[in-house]
Amino acid sequence: MELIQIILLACVQGLTEFLPISSSAHLIVTPLLFGYALQSLAFDVAVHVGTLAAVMLYFRQELVRMTIAALLSLRDRSLADPDARLAWMVIVATAPILALGLPLKTLLELLRQDDDLVGLVIVGTTIGFGLLLWLADRLGRRHRDEYGIGWGSALVIGLFQTVAIIPGTSRSGITMTAGLFLGLTRQAASRFSFLLSIPTILIAGLLETKELIDSPTPVAWDELWLGALLSFVVAYLTIHFFLRFIERVSMFPFVVYRLLLGGLILWVVLQ
Rank of each mutant, 00 (worst) to 15 (best):
I127V: 15
L131W: 11
L212K: 02
K105C: 08
H48K: 13
D145F: 02
M56Y: 10
L52M: 15
E109F: 06
L261Y: 09
L259G: 00
P218F: 07
P82L: 02
E2A: 10
R171F: 06
T126E: 03
V92E: 13
F129T: 08
G130P: 11
R112D: 04
E223C: 01
L32R: 14
L9Q: 10
V29D: 04
W221A: 02
S24F: 03
F192A: 09
F18M: 09
L139D: 01
A42D: 09
E146C: 04
I7S: 09
F34T: 08
L139A: 07
L33Q: 03
E2P: 15
L19N: 02
V121F: 10
L264D: 01
L207H: 11
I7H: 08
L260R: 00
L107R: 09
L207F: 14
L100A: 12
A189Y: 05
M251K: 00
V269T: 11
L196D: 07
V219T: 07
V64F: 14
L86D: 04
Q271W: 04
A204V: 13
D114S: 11
I149A: 09
L107N: 03
A189Q: 10
P20E: 08
A228N: 06
R142Y: 00
I7K: 11
A42I: 00
E109S: 12
G124L: 12
F252H: 01
L224P: 05
S40K: 02
L131C: 11
V123I: 07
L226D: 06
G14I: 07
A53G: 12
P103V: 08
G119H: 00
A154F: 02
S73F: 13
E223M: 02
D137T: 14
G179C: 06
L3A: 05
V45I: 14
T185V: 04
A42M: 00
R138T: 14
W267C: 00
L195M: 13
R258E: 01
I166M: 11
D76V: 03
T162D: 03
L120D: 00
V233N: 12
L182F: 06
I174W: 02
T94A: 11
